[in-house]
């Protein structure tokens, strides 16, 4: 059955957005990522204008992350204190990122910077997560017997002022640490036009040293608020949110997020990290192919990446 989308001005088979929502919602519930880096290109592939795809995706992420946050909160896997500190940094970073993009667009090389940021960030994060997770799965027993060795970087983090204990995550950091890293992710997310979950998750795991299951719930909590802000701004300033498309996507994604949360608890933290790393690397390879192979059409609708 086909439905007409009033803002995208196109008709779509309802199975496509519901199916995409289900698949991306599953990833959201499993890994704590919004899935924007997957969903937006998929929607464009199915004929949705790029500006509408990006704006509407943020609306469905609100639903999926609400559903996912709720599921994780019920089992005590959301660190609200850490989430708020990351959120403050992410909000400021997002504003800085939007300004950077404006300057880059005026200079005429925004697309190059965006594409390179995508490849580099996804490539580095994916490779690091993959290698680290495989190594830690192999060496788990050996490492468990050794006392944790503190690096210079972690000693520097501990020396910062405003140290506070994050009870749910079981870690102690300066409030500046999540705020600064949240800001850094916020800048990159704004530059890349995504929610930033796939960058935030590694920051929480490797820099903030939070346990993987709390990372997923807290990341979803933070993404929820980011996407509420983005949805409102997109609807108010750009008129690009397609309500019908959003409803079809969120029908799938909310169910997917719940199923993902259930599966997530059955998998070990290291297994989750390996699977997420593989997905991130597959997306990286896809972008590299897109960049190097001659496209079928040399013109595309203006407005998207």
């Amino acid at each position: 059955m086909y439905l007409y989308l009033p803002v995208a001005l196109t008709s779509i088979n309802i199975l496509i957005p519901v199916g995409l929502g289900l698949a991306v919602g599953l990833l959201s519930g499993l890994f704590g990522v919004g899935g924007g880096f997957l969903m937006t290109p998929l929607l464009i592939m199915f004929g949705i204008p790029s500006t509408v795809a990006a704006a509407t995706d943020s609306t469905q992420i609100v639903a999926a992350s609400t559903s996912g946050t709720y599921a994780h909160w019920k089992v005590g896997n959301v660190d609200f204190k850490m989430g708020l500190h990351l959120l403050v940094g992410g909000f400021v970073g997002g504003l800085l990122g939007v300004q950077s993009i404006k300057i880059l667009r005026a200079m005429g090389n925004a697309d190059f910077v965006i594409k390179m940021t995508y490849v580099l960030m996804l490539g580095i994060v994916g490779t690091y997560m993959f290698i680290e997770s495989i190594q830690s799965m192999r060496n788990k027993k050996v490492e468990e017997s050794k006392p944790e060795k503190k690096s210079g970087f972690s000693r520097f983090l501990k020396s910062l002022p405003f140290q506070t204990h994050y009870e749910k995550s079981g870690v102690t950091h300066s409030v500046l640490v999540p705020a600064i890293f949240g800001g850094f992710v916020g800048i990159l997310a704004a530059v890349m036009g995504v929610g930033g979950g796939f960058l935030m998750v590694p920051v929480m795991v490797y820099i903030l040293r939070m346990p993987m299951h709390v990372v997923v719930g807290t990341s979803l909590f933070q993404i929820l608020f980011n996407c509420i802000e983005v949805t409102f701004l997109q609807a108010y300033t750009n008129h690009n949110v397609d309500f019908i498309l959003a409803v079809l996507l969120l029908l799938g994604s909310t169910v997917g997020a719940q199923v993902g949360a259930v599966f997530g608890r059955k998998l070990k933290g290291e297994q989750l990290k390996v699977i997420l790393a593989v997905i991130v690397l597959v997306v990286t390879v896809k972008i590299i192919f897109e960049l190097t192979l001659t496209p079928s059409l040399l013109l595309s609708q203006a407005g998207g990446h």
């Binding site: 609306t59 639903a63 609400t66 609807a235 309500f243 409803v247 969120l250 909310t254 169910v255």
Partner: peptide
């Protein structure tokens, strides 16, 4: 925008 957000939150909580 507000209706879209409320609908998304409602569906998210509902399914949850």
């Amino acid at each position: 925008g507000i209706i879209s957000i409320i609908a998304a939150l409602g569906v998210g909580f509902g399914v949850g």
